[in-house]
Design a binder for these strands. Sequence first.
RNA 1: CGGGCUGUGGCGCAGCUUGGUAGCGCGCUUGACUGGGGGUCAAGAGGUCCCGGGUUCAAAUCCCGGCAGCCCGACCA
Length: 465
Amino acid sequence: MLTPRSVDFPKWYQDVVAKAELAEGGPVRGTQVIRPYGYAIWERIQAELDSRIKAAGAKNAYFPLLIPQSYLIREADHVEGFSPELAVVTHGGGKALEEPVVIRPTSETIINAYFSKWVNSYRDLPLLINQWCNVVRWEMRPRLLLRSTEFLWQEGHTAHATEAEARAYALRILAEVYREVMVDVLGIPVLVGRKTERERFPGATTTWTCEAMMSDGKALQMGTSHELGQGFARAFGIEFSSEAGTSELVWQTSWGVSTRLLGALIMAHGDDAGLRLAPRIAPVQVVVVVVRDEDGAGPVASELVSSLVGAGVRAEADVRVESSYGRRITEWELKGVPLRIEVGPRDLASGTVAVVRRDSGEKLALAPGAVCSAVPRLLDEIQSAMLSGALSAREAGTADVASVAEAAEAAQSGFARIAWRVLGVDGEASLLRDGVSVRCLVGQDGALVALGAEDDAVAVVARAY
RNA sequence: CGGGCUGUGGCGCAGCUUGGUAGCGCGCUUGACUGGGGGUCAAGAGGUCCCGGGUUCAAAUCCCGGCAGCCCGACCA
């Protein structure tokens, strides 16, 4: 069990997934190295997101890393929200720059500068752009994977003809891209809701969020989708000629998820033996471990792997028999590989191989010929067992409360649900002093709450990473 | 910017109170025995004890001054 506060991340986390390793000459505080295995997981997350983003009509593009400082100043709320955490470049080519440039903390400004050139007519809308890149935010308190100085992410930026269209698109991304990947692929249940005014993104009119409970009861914001209104459109002059021939400002959205999702995977599913990956996200779904290459174990293992691969399973053989058996399976457990198949002389003597689930530790003996048909079913079972396990943990850790004091109390160990009417902005401020924040507003039934319809909303409050 | 703490082989640490030959675990090298949950034994390699000054016959240890990092609050994908 990961413990609050101290987790940052247990040792296995750093060994397996990421570590703020230091470069020669000294690293920048809060930066991190993503090791190959962690990056392989990230690549799978990327692929799942990317295909859904494209299905939602957005196209990938790339914009400059360096943004003139003056761009960031154009949108008042935006600059106010970001200025303390900007990394500013003052020199280039051996001399001081006339105008400093900032390393992007997010790309609203530079992308909108281009949008103003790209949008002329209603025929150019909607304009749906996504960018995969790194960004830098000089956070006061960096935290490995969860809030690092530099991180990798995807940021979407769109422009629409109407507010309704923009809102619908922001919500579509939330539901069809983020929620789907987090819940159906990563196996992490999320609450989808709206941020309070206090918590919303600088420059946005409405911020929607996906919030998850980690295994220690704390909350993690896994992704956001913002309605930007017309603020940036006004600041950057993004106008179009409507069908009626009038000149109008576009309505915009932006949305992003980051390598924080790697942190979420670890903290939502990890246990004392290491990572546990849901089968759909695992770079290796099945590892076939040759215990000792005797009595035909090696050939049986490689046959198993090739038939699994042929069946579309991401399977790998571990034939490193020169290394100790215990060491090897510990390593696979650390990596969170969902299924381990052990092939050794002892198994073969009984005409079986041992199949072990990482999620539950459950072990069963199967005839080699039965493995190929059993594995996909087992992987599905693991996928849904991990999701429902996390879901019941969240439900068990969530309390319905009727007062601010009770909310503060309940949020020490999990989530608390409290009517927004009861909490209000004053209650929100008071909770913050106890380290508890409003994670999101949801309807009584968990549905989305529109702006201005807070009276019946429920605030979900928790301590957060 | 406030409050606490730590700097000692590659990594993690003990030693400091009460100065006296620099230690342990992990890792690494070599060999043997092992081999179904990070194996055992043996032999090795590896350190300007963060930096500078002071006290002393003698400083990792005591004193002064720096520097660096970590943790707790304000920031956040």
